[in-house]
Amino acid sequence: MSTSLTPRPGTTPMLSAQNIARYFDVSKPLLQRMIAREGKRTLRAVDGLSFDIPKGTTLSLVGESGCGKSTVARLVVGLYGTSGGRVMFDGQDLSLARADSKQRSRMQMIFQDPYASLNPRWRVVDIVAEPIRAFGLLDDKQAILRRVGELLTQVGLSPLDGSKYPHEFSGGQRQRISIARALSSNPEFLVCDEPTSALDVSVQAQILNLMKELQTRLGLTYLFISHNLAVVRQVSDRIGVMYLGKLVELAPAESLFSRPRHPYTRALMEAIPDLEMTGRKRIPVGGEVPSPISPPPGCTFHPRCPLANERCRIEVPLMTLAGDAMVACHAVEEGRDQEGRGALPR
């Protein structure tokens, strides 16, 4: 079963996640467990996720903290091993691709925290050159320096910045250094884990513009992780909405915003403060995200869902096609969602 959206025939997606899962053992130590007579406890951070990312496009994953989106980012670059399912990188199994330095150099990652993602004891030139040296792309010292200068210019810094240390830069500038480092191995696939959420808005705009520009110029493929729907709208071709380790909706960006189908997607959009101050009344989602260690049975969203009924409490909904989107919701499948439509924005 493939839940990918309209895969173009004949082209291999850059990345294909097939029913991937990642569980973490969060049990107490053995001795404590024996005393308390508890069993093992498993956190299902990612629980059966499938998606494709065609080359040159951006797939975004959105969701609240703890929904597993950052874990997905780490799974697809091999920082975590999968507990189930498999990841295909350009048609090749990820573990094989990771073992081959040529394949490995085609994927890179940009991180959230610009203060933790650069080694504070290294000069910028060494930070940016690290992938070049690690993959042996250039071995002449002058050539490496020249290339680092090019990369820094490409991300809007000066080649002279190379001799400085990370602490001499602002958050936005550090994120540019991070991007320069990611680009230095000439990757085709970039995983961006909340790349702008630690930045101020005015700087966020700079970084988003830079990333879009680089995508057009270098033909990059992005997996973009964010909790900010407005940001996601600006960069994505397709968007997946995650809740408690599962995808609840996967749709083309425009379609998701013009016609959000899953009740959770709609709730997320309603929760965003209204900057235009149109005076629309917001109805906040009630309740909080349950613990992923003991998720509710059936559809995990049912305790907060206005459309939940008996079936939702028992049966786990599967991703099914609804128009141009894939949605995991009994209510949508049965057409029960149409009743509340009028109250929604847009």
């Binding site: 602002s170 936005g172 500038q173 808005v201 005015s202 700087v203 966020q204 705009a205 700079q206 988003l208 513009n209 879009k212 900010n228 729907l229 407005a230 940001v231 709208r233 600006q234 960006a253 425009e254 915003f257 959009m269 965003i272 900057l275 235009e276 847009r346």
Partner: peptide, 24 residues
Amino acid sequence: KGLMDSIPPLDRRVERLQQIDGSM
């Protein structure tokens, strides 16, 4: 004005966001 303009809009996609160059 620059600050307000650089907030990404939720209701539409823009090709290029307004940005304030440089940093504080």
